[in-house]
């Protein structure tokens, strides 16, 4: 395995780089898109249930079908990485829009009302109070979406663009175990590392959650 790595480290490194790019770019785009959509699901209560249903349907589309179908829809080349990015962005939005809505809905109405009564306007209240208080829920959703994306990228290998997934296809074609094992290990490490980073960010951004049950005596 070491020998495989030394001989092919450029291939492995390129695959890893592509994997990171294909998994994380959709997370960033998805988060930016999901925030306003999720907010609309709270701002207009009638919109919440349709939102949840559409998100559920979108997320249930098999990834391979989406990878194959998107070029037809977008007019892109079948092997273009943009197909993977768009597909994974759709999954990310499907997961996060609902999470953002649920996070905002989880904010105690007493808190939003007291913010309003103190003279917050709607938009500033959203950024100063509601989003920060909803952050633990939103970041929990982000962890799920990130890990899910990192594993889904590999499926893209079946249509020729799949980051570490290409190591799997290569291993299968050559009846060769090393690239498969390396692909799995790197995939898992990458998912674990990404998860850890989000947890660290969460700890830095929400120090108040660690004191949730530390109330003193009367």
């Amino acid at each position: 395995m070491i020998q495989y790595l030394t001989n092919n480290h450029e291939v492995v490194l390129a695959a890893l780089q592509q994997h990171i790019y294909l998994a994380l770019l959709p997370i960033l785009i998805g988060l930016v898109v999901a925030l306003p959509i999720g907010y609309l699901g709270v701002r207009f209560p009638w919109f919440y249930h349709p939102l949840v249903n559409v998100c559920g349907v979108l997320y249930s589309i098999p990834s391979l079908a989406l990878f194959v179908f998107l070029p037809v829809l977008l007019g892109t080349k079948i092997l273009a990485p943009v197909n993977i990015v768009v597909a994974l962005t759709i999954y990310t939005v499907a997961l996060l829009a609902r999470t953002v809505a649920d996070g905002l809905r989880s904010v105690d109405p007493v808190i939003t009302q007291s913010a309003t009564a103190m003279g917050y306007r709607r938009l500033r209240r959203l950024f100063d109070v509601e989003l920060p208080v909803a952050l633990p829920v939103i970041l929990a959703g982000l962890r799920v979406a990130t890990v899910s994306n990192i594993s889904l990228v590999s499926v893209g290998a079946l249509i020729g663009v799949g980051g570490l997934g290409q190591l799997f296809t290569r291993g299968f074609q050559l009846f060769y175990l090393e690239p498969i094992i390396i692909g799995i290990i790197l995939s898992v490490l990458l998912a674990g590392l990404a998860d850890l980073i989000i947890v660290l960010v969460q700890r830095a951004l929400t120090p108040w959650t660690r004191h949730q049950h530390g109330g003193g005596a009367a």
Partner: peptide
């Protein structure tokens, strides 16, 4: 000024 039952403090601040 506005004061409510349970104070309604911002938990994140």
């Amino acid at each position: 000024g506005y004061v409510i039952q349970h104070a309604g403090l911002f938990p994140h601040r």
